[in-house]
Amino acid sequence: MSRKCQISGKFANNAYSISHSHIRTKRKQHVNLQKKKIWSILENRWMHVRISTKAMKSLYRMNL
């Protein structure tokens, strides 16, 4: 399974690690993914998803 949010579609970002001597090496900034069980209103059942914490926060905000 890829490192991609199943709700928002977020995935890794390309970035640089910069050393003290300013040598740049490529690296990835991965999404903070969590495995959660979410209630689906459309299917009327619990679903296991890999969701980013940002999407989790916005889902929580929409349900309030």
Rank of each mutant, 00 (worst) to 15 (best):
S17C: 05
K10Y: 06
Y60R: 10
N14S: 10
K57C: 05
A55M: 00
N44H: 14
K35P: 05
S2I: 12
S58D: 13
N14R: 05
K35M: 11
M47R: 09
N13D: 13
Y16G: 02
R24A: 07
S52Q: 03
Y60C: 08
R50Q: 08
I51Y: 00
A55Y: 00
I38S: 02
Y16I: 03
V49I: 06
R61Y: 08
N13V: 15
S17D: 09
Q6Y: 04
K54C: 05
S8V: 03
I51L: 00
H22Q: 12
N44E: 14
I51G: 01
K10N: 10
R50E: 11
T25E: 03
I7R: 10
W39F: 02
S58C: 11
Y16N: 09
I7L: 15
E43N: 12
Q34D: 15
K35H: 08
H30D: 14
C5Y: 00
F11R: 08
R61E: 15
R27Q: 12
C5A: 02
A12Q: 03
C5F: 00
V31C: 02
N63D: 07
L33V: 01
N14W: 04
I23D: 04
W46D: 14
M1I: 04
N32A: 14
N63W: 05
W46H: 10
R61D: 15
S21E: 09
V31Q: 01
L64F: 11
A12L: 01
R50K: 04
Q6P: 01
W46V: 08
S21Q: 10
M1C: 13
Q6R: 01
G9Y: 03
I41A: 09
N13G: 15
S52T: 07
F11M: 05
S8W: 03
K26G: 08
R50C: 03
S40M: 01
L64Q: 13
T25W: 00
H48Q: 14
Q34P: 06
I38Y: 00
M47G: 06
L59G: 02
S40N: 07
N44I: 06
S2F: 03
N14H: 09
Q29C: 08
S58W: 10
M62P: 06
A55N: 02
C5S: 03
K57W: 09
S21L: 11
K4Y: 01
S52W: 02
L42G: 04
Q34A: 10
S19N: 01
I23H: 11
N44D: 15
V31T: 07
M47P: 09
N32V: 14
H20P: 02
H30R: 10
M62A: 13
A12H: 04
A12C: 04
L42D: 15
K26R: 07
K4V: 11
R3L: 15
L59C: 07
I7P: 00
S21C: 12
V31Y: 01
R50H: 07
Q29I: 10
Q29E: 12
K35G: 13
K36V: 15
K37H: 11
A15Q: 05
K36I: 14
K28Q: 09
H20Q: 10
M62G: 08
S17R: 05
S8H: 04
K4C: 06
L33F: 00
K28R: 09
Q6F: 00
L64Y: 13
I38F: 00
A15L: 06
M62N: 11
I23G: 03
S17I: 06
A55I: 02
V31A: 00
N44K: 09
I41K: 09
R50F: 13
